[in-house]
Design a protein around this nucleic acid. Structure first.
Lengths: 281, 281
DNA sequence: TCAATTTTGTAGTAAAATTACAACTTAAGT
DNA sequence: ACTTAAGTTGTAATTTTACTACAAAATTGA
């Protein structure tokens, strides 16, 4: 639907000159919608028909129709586009690009989450006897963060980044335990094995991973996040950030579900941190 | 701003035929934006110049410009605002709110970063003999993530979340070492002490923290991020996510600075991960 | 290296929007 | 009721903009 996304994502569909047009538009979409086909052709350094062909390739009726779509995208509140960092970018460029593509990734992820699964998982977490968060590599820090968040809730929660510890912990799991496994690809062998072990012990497995993956298939519940692929080398993994946001959501759902008395408790935890801090002045 | 509102409200400004145009547009705005001036004139039962005059009266440059404004009005969705989660929100509401306020936080953080400091810090990191990332609490997982990213670069990098280990490591630091300390508030006592120790050893201290804070003042370089305060209990800490994005930016700057041969190396690391994964099928 | 295919631009054409101006309408003053 | 001036609307010409057909250039594969 959103034509700006379409331009960024289907960039391989364009020919060389069409890519120039795409760049010119992405560089300054506000200018683009107020330009005539001739002006935009100039700006992109191509001929008018090329601009026209570019519009057609995006399934619009022509240039004016394209401008309409573009105007709508801009108004839609999605000013963030996933622009790739390239070799010649200076600090200003790559800083802005990374911020923007992270926001764009979150926006896409937002549209892909399944609310009812979230609700169900929050349910399970509030009733869990023990909650475990496991991940490896870059997902380990996400699991680590989850530990931090849930630890404040004063519930039994564990986190390991060591495969052996993860296995040992899982072997001792029982019915009523919830094990959250985090993996972007869902193809990390040792996590898939953990999922199998956990289910054999009647523990519930929640996968924060791709739905159609070995880990996804071994999980009782899958929270999948569509995140634009990190196509090139420079692109940082936006999936981590989407995963963290998902953790925030689960933690928030958890707090809301627990009700008022529980939140009093949370305040106390926050207070207790003050001792390890310098005062405000 | 919104042109649809303007049409409805300022109806007394229009002449008789212009009102016909207004009606025709309000009756079916979706059709209007896809019509030519001739079609719309027909639909309204007036002449083409009348339609044009109608557009001008609404302070647009002409018919095409008017269509753009109209298209934007129609597409106008909710922009990213920092809406707080409240007690009565269901899963759908709090999920959307958290995604949106995270994006809003990134947007604000983006505007507050100091590019020249980033550039300077990237410089230091590429020349460092050893890089350390330390954080506590929720900043520990950010440091953990930084370790992951920089570890791939095959540079000497360490990370500890244990205060004692952090101190020991810092005591052995020397000139040429860079120590990155992460703390949202910048008031964590033990990190401030580490900053002092590090500087006493001629190591360079980079603080990812508030500029005007004890830790900020003890750092050689401060990368500060303005992030909306988590005003209430339910609000998750968006600062973590902004910090992670900053780590991404530093890592990207690092890769870009190191040049081509270095990136070949990165590819090899990516390849080597494949063995621990299931194949794509 | 040559033929086939794709991509791109030039020049001409068609369509759309705008302008200038004339005709009509309306309302006020005589 | 007639005249006139201001305002409104439409016709026709003009200008601008977008599109099409075709030819040149570039790319690809044999």
């Amino acid at each position: 639907m959103n034509i700006l996304d379409k331009i960024t994502r289907n960039s391989e569909l364009f020919s060389k000159s069409e890519k120039k047009v795409a760049e010119a538009i992405l560089a300054n979409p506000q200018t683009a919608i107020h330009s005539s086909i001739a002006t935009l052709a100039n700006l992109s350094g191509v001929s008018e028909p090329t601009v026209n062909r570019f519009c057609r390739r995006l399934d619009t009726k022509g240039f004016p129709d394209f401008k309409l779509h573009l105007a709508q995208s801009l108004a839609q509140g999605t000013p963030y586009v996933n622009r790739n960092v390239d070799e010649n970018d200076g600090p200003e460029e790559y800083t802005n690009k990374i911020f923007e593509s992270t926001m764009a990734a979150l926006d896409i992820a937002k549209q892909s989450v399944d609310i009812s699964t979230i609700n169900r998982v929050v349910d399970l977490l509030t009733q869990a006897k023990k909650i475990s968060f496991f991940g490896l590599g870059s997902s380990a820090s996400v699991a680590h963060d989850a530990l931090n968040k849930f630890f404040r809730f004063n519930v039994p929660v564990v986190y390991f980044e060591d495969i052996v510890m993860q296995r040992m912990s899982t072997m001792n799991s029982t019915e009523g335990d919830v094990i959250v496994l985090i993996s972007h690809t869902g193809r990390t062998k040792s996590l898939v094995e953990i999922a199998q072990m956990a289910r054999a012990n009647d523990a519930i497995v929640v996968g924060i991973t791709a739905a159609d993956s070995p880990l996804g298939r071994e999980s009782n519940y899958v929270l999948s996040l569509d995140v634009p692929e990190d196509t090139d080398m420079y692109m940082p993994m936006a999936s981590r950030i989407a995963q963290l946001t998902l953790i925030d959501i689960l933690a928030t759902g958890f707090t809301l579900r627990r009700g008022n008395k529980f939140r009093e408790n949370l305040k106390r935890v926050k207070e207790s941190l003050k001792d390890s801090r310098f005062s405000l002045n």
